[in-house]
Design a protein around this nucleic acid. Sequence first.
RNA 1: UGAGCGGUAGAUCAACAGGUAGAUCGCCUGGCUGUUAACCAGGAGGGUGCAAGUUCGAACCCUGCCCGCUCAGCCA
Length: 430
Amino acid sequence: MANVSIKDLGKHAGEEVTLRGWLYNKRHKGKLQFILLRDGSGTAQCVAFRGNVGDELFDRLDRLGQESSLTVTGTVKEDKRSPGGYEIDVTGAEIIQESGEYPITPKEHGVDFLLRHRHLWLRSNKQVAVMRIRDRLVRAIREFLADDGFINVDTPIFTPAACEGTTTLFELKYFDEMAYLTQSGQLYNEATAMAHGKVYCFGPTFRAERSKTRKHLTEFWMVEPEVMFADLDDIMELTERFVTAIVKEVLEHCRGELEVLERDVSKLEGIEPPFPRISYTDAVGMLKKGGHNFEWGGDFGAPDETLIGESFERPVLVHRYPKAVKAFYMEPDPDDERIALCVDMIAPEGYGEIIGGGQRTASLEYLEKQIDAHGLPHEAFEWYKDLRRYGSVYHSGFGLGIERTVAWLCGSKHIRECTAFPRMLYKIYP
RNA sequence: UGAGCGGUAGAUCAACAGGUAGAUCGCCUGGCUGUUAACCAGGAGGGUGCAAGUUCGAACCCUGCCCGCUCAGCCA
């Protein structure tokens, strides 16, 4: 008897097959039982008649609790009444383990309860769909970058000092000294990019911010491409091609998952270059026109970002922020000293900033001034300054937040469902 | 960290103006050969986050604490 994946059921119509999985739900009607079996690839309806399987097996199946593990053998039949269009006419079954009372029922649950049972919640069909979309996104990212000539060089998680000196870092003991968990691979990326030309790092990053919003995790994944001989315009063009490509890949391969999530895909189908581009100064004008109380020079707050993002159908590139609100390594605008050559991409539908990036300064002199201006210790950045001493060139890069992108693609209202085991303020179990 | 809201059966929620806690899902028992979060009948299961207080009487009111959610700041 062939072991078959539920997703391939349609290819085996008329054959007798064996499915291996877990009991998702069950309905019974007298001498008839409808067993919904899931195996990770999908869910199949298995129909058991008392007369066909015998009293003993029928009664054992009848007593089986949700998420019990079992194998089911039977003939694949096409049937319009079955959820997937196909069903199994059960001839036999083998119970592997009878599950105890399963905490997650097919009814509604609160977030707190679900997060405490995250290790089980992951089995639910929507959660399975989200993780599959995330997997596809990660694949699409790596494929796009490899095809575009990027080399993957990952950067360290343990770092001796703050990368940008702004956010709060997780501190830990590193033998006899202190170390921090990385908040960005950015600076190291600049070093590896000078070895390879075009690189990216892809890994977890950590922020010890006491944020409690639907857009923040303390541990999240970020992909950060860095390109030598690229200016701000080059990098904006790259972000546009990059985001378009990954959205297309997910749309192409994850139709079923997006359907499970009831995502309105028409919102994603229109994602094509060119993306709208507005300068920070123009964005400030938009905010004022929209009734927001906002002065030139400040950073956008969440409501500001939402207004800007919702004004466009496509992701919008907001460029040239005041350098005071950006990281120390940003190249200043030659036309306006107060401005940094940087860009943020704000996703539509209120999903917020998914990309932050810009052109890095190539000048040692300017870099030193900025390190002073930000009150950062020069010793920590000697190696970084070497990059400006030995063959410095203009270069640019950006970082894309994976969970925020997954949230946008899936239409999830909260980022915590976009990673298998979210780490948040006061939440580190399971 | 601040503001707002909230903690009632395993879960999701209800309980009029303070009057002594109820529904649904799940679980157990029985019924039904086409169910779609199946349905029908019956049953078990909590004393209301914790502590102190007001009252004849508190899930409801007062005080303190704990926990959670949402939003904000910060950012991807």
